[in-house]
Amino acid sequence: MNLLRGAALVAATLTTGLIAGLFYSFTVAVMPGLRQAEDRSFVDTMQRINVAIINGWFMLCFVGALLLIALAAALHLRAAGRPALPWIAAALVLYLVMFVITAAVNVPLNNALDAAGKPGAITDLAAVRARFEATWVGWNVVRTLTSTAAFGCLTWALVLFGRSTP
């Protein structure tokens, strides 16, 4: 059972770290770089990113991390002393916050941006960008912080798990 607990915790930590790193990359490199682009380049690039990111590897980590954190928490419910459980639970809450923000804010903004240039859509790219950029970037910072904090909690849970495993 300890092997299964450990494996779930390691997998949850790795997938959460990958997602935190992705959001961090957008926070410190992608969006600051795109800030310098003209409106057409900005909109076109973000539209292409929105298409490219929906792939099996991203979804495996993005959804998989949530499921793996929940699995790790469930497996630690009956563990002796449960020293890692509070940290896993905190990670689950933090990751859920990020997940909800993504679904409620960033994805709808991405969808609105993707509609630009299509028949009946707003063709003023400066207006499209203005409706998207500041809000998306601000909430991405929150996603970066919450997913990174979840990764930190899981990392500490791994330390505690290692200390408590005979």
Rank of each mutant, 00 (worst) to 15 (best):
N55S: 13
G138P: 00
R82W: 04
K118Q: 13
V105F: 03
L66K: 03
A127H: 10
V97H: 02
G33R: 10
T146W: 00
F132S: 01
E133R: 11
A20F: 08
V30Q: 06
W87A: 08
E133P: 08
P86E: 09
V30M: 07
F151R: 12
C61M: 15
L96F: 15
I122L: 12
A74F: 14
I101E: 09
A116T: 07
P32W: 05
L125E: 07
Y95K: 10
A116V: 05
R129W: 08
T123I: 09
G152F: 00
P86T: 04
R163S: 06
A157W: 08
M31I: 03
Q47D: 05
A90T: 02
T27Y: 13
L113M: 13
T165L: 13
L3N: 14
A12I: 03
T144W: 15
V141Y: 14
L3P: 06
A73R: 13
R129Y: 07
L77V: 09
S25Y: 05
S25L: 10
R163K: 13
L85Q: 01
N110H: 08
T144L: 09
I54F: 12
E133Y: 09
A150L: 10
G117M: 00
A7R: 05
F42A: 10
I101Y: 04
L22I: 12
V137C: 04
A103R: 10
N50I: 06
P86Y: 05
L34G: 01
E38Y: 01
P32F: 01
